[in-house]
Design a binder for these strands. Sequence first.
DNA 1: GCCCGTGTTGAGAACGGTTATCATTACTGA
DNA 2: TCAGTAATGATAACCGTTCTCAACACGGGC
Lengths: 134, 134
Amino acid sequence: MAIRRNTWQREAVREALERSEGFISAQALHTELHRTGSPIGLATVYRALADLSTEGEADSLQSPEGEAIYRSCASIDHHHHLICRQCGTTAEIEATEVEAWASRVAAEHGFTEARHVVDIFGLCADCTAAAARA
Amino acid sequence: MAIRRNTWQREAVREALERSEGFISAQALHTELHRTGSPIGLATVYRALADLSTEGEADSLQSPEGEAIYRSCASIDHHHHLICRQCGTTAEIEATEVEAWASRVAAEHGFTEARHVVDIFGLCADCTAAAARA
DNA sequence: GCCCGTGTTGAGAACGGTTATCATTACTGA
DNA sequence: TCAGTAATGATAACCGTTCTCAACACGGGC
């Protein structure tokens, strides 16, 4: 694992992830890749996503349904999300104050290696309007 | 499903959940119940937890490892958690500033019915010390 | 360009958590 | 007490994810 080789598979996953808007599950990404002709294996998709995630090129979080979902993360810096639980669209949000708060609180309680989960699930403007009509 | 019957199992799950501090997984709760002598089935624990969750008597969220974890929700007031990913102990934390931030950000983007997930996972002081020794 | 060592791939098996199945049990209202 | 029917629980099925391992292919050295 010392040297990372470049393979078309890894690149295909990166591109497919960038092409898809919002969060997408590994399975969905695999299906999408097959649909567009890539005979890539499911295991490879998982591996590529895990790699992208650790390298900071992708965000990953757990959907409320328990799936791991991924998103291309052009800006390497840490940020959070506003996710519509109806249509899945996301908006990146600034959370500078929350960052500070999180690390302060963790430190106050003697916690180390703190990673925080700060995401807001709601109904986006469109879906709110659609729900109002129904 | 029209009528809900009262069974000792359901009550046992509720009590065990209240007794356990912080978040606990369904499996752990099942193990705990068996340890204290209840021959309750795993499926029943899942069902009871799901019911408690929909009734609002319990909170549920996904741990970063993908497990569903539950917490008794006696106090209706909303608060957040600092969770040790090693031993599972939790501390309740005040998050007034984060509450304000979350609703403000959601409103700014036209989102409604926003529920936020704000939890910090880390290593508690004890586990940090234990890890340092190893 | 060709070889070879080794990182990578992929099909399928294994795995762990959760949910469904279904015969049996036991609440509950009459 | 009794019948009707939710609830239970052992187990199988399910689903997403990770592991296994033989086959493959990238890339540095020649």
